[in-house]
Amino acid sequence: MGAWIAQLKNFNLPVPVPETVLVQLLQRCQEIAHSSLLEGAKLVRAVEELFPGQSQALNHLAGMVMTSPARSGAATTSPPPGTSYPASYEAAVPAQQMVLSLLAAREILSSLTLTVSVSQPVVERQWLTETGVLTLKAEYEPDPNSAHLRIQGSLPSGGNLVLRGDGSQSRAERSTPGSLSVELFDLKPSQPHILEVQLAEADPTPLIFTVRTAEV
């Protein structure tokens, strides 16, 4: 996952979260982003392996995190009552570490999810990698006869895009930096689609996004 960590280090969290924790959260968030779970359940699922046996506390703190304001794409929230944020993640008490991990998970899940709709048919996303910036543009055409999803990617190095839907797949690759495009037709309403991005030179592990279509 080394190529993808640069983006996570740019999150505006109250206290920096260790890279080892961010890597684990990124892996878990990729696994659950496409699920039908509600946001709070996704956050708890993302961090529960870090805090075994603490599901009740995590559920409570996840509620706090979800109601906290997000400014300029950066999640911020107050620390648990009666405490303040410590100088480092390692120096934090468990409740503080839970909040910081939940905040990081919320940022990761948000970054990994692209939602296009009738009212917002185009969504763009950037992800900083160790070789440069990956740019993705999702375009949705809600044709009643053949709804259409197209992903354009600008890759900082050679690599490939794979877009998967319900029984269908579109793939494109190139050996040098530049643009790629994948698309699917005959989409089912509200069906999540999986987009895998792989940068051949930087990291053999793909980054997995979830692309959601909404009919509003």
Rank of each mutant, 00 (worst) to 15 (best):
Q56W: 02
T77N: 05
P18M: 00
L161Q: 15
V17E: 07
H34K: 08
P204N: 01
S146I: 05
V15E: 07
G165E: 04
Q96V: 11
C29Q: 04
S146D: 15
E39G: 00
A70H: 07
V99S: 07
E215M: 13
L136M: 03
L134P: 11
Q191H: 06
A6P: 05
V23Y: 06
C29I: 00
P144Y: 02
T67Y: 03
V216C: 08
A105N: 15
V123H: 03
A41S: 14
A74Q: 12
P121L: 04
Q120C: 04
W127D: 07
P81E: 00
I108N: 10
R125E: 11
S84Q: 14
E39R: 07
D166L: 11
Q54F: 02
K42L: 00
L26E: 05
K42M: 01
N145V: 09
S35A: 08
P121A: 05
T115L: 11
G73I: 06
A138W: 03
R125V: 06
L128I: 03
V122T: 12
N10Y: 07
L61N: 01
I108L: 07
P189Q: 12
G73W: 05
T129W: 13
Q30R: 06
A92M: 03
A6T: 11
A91L: 08
R125D: 09
P18R: 00
L22P: 04
L112D: 10
Q54E: 13
E215H: 09
K42N: 00
T205M: 13
L184G: 09
V197Y: 13
M1D: 08
M66L: 15
P204W: 00
Q152Y: 11
R174D: 08
A147I: 02
A57I: 05
M66C: 05
T131I: 10
Q152E: 15
S181Y: 03
T135D: 14
Q152F: 12
V65E: 00
L103G: 14
A57M: 07
I151D: 12
G82D: 00
S170E: 04
N12R: 12
L161I: 11
P18W: 00
H60V: 14
T135S: 15
T131F: 08
T113D: 01
E196H: 14
G158I: 01
K9G: 10
P52C: 06
G73D: 07
T113W: 01
V216A: 12
Q54G: 02
P189G: 09
F51V: 02
Q56S: 10
K9W: 03
L37D: 11
L61W: 14
P142D: 06
L13V: 12
S72D: 14
Q96A: 09
Q27D: 09
V133T: 15
L26W: 07
Q97Y: 08
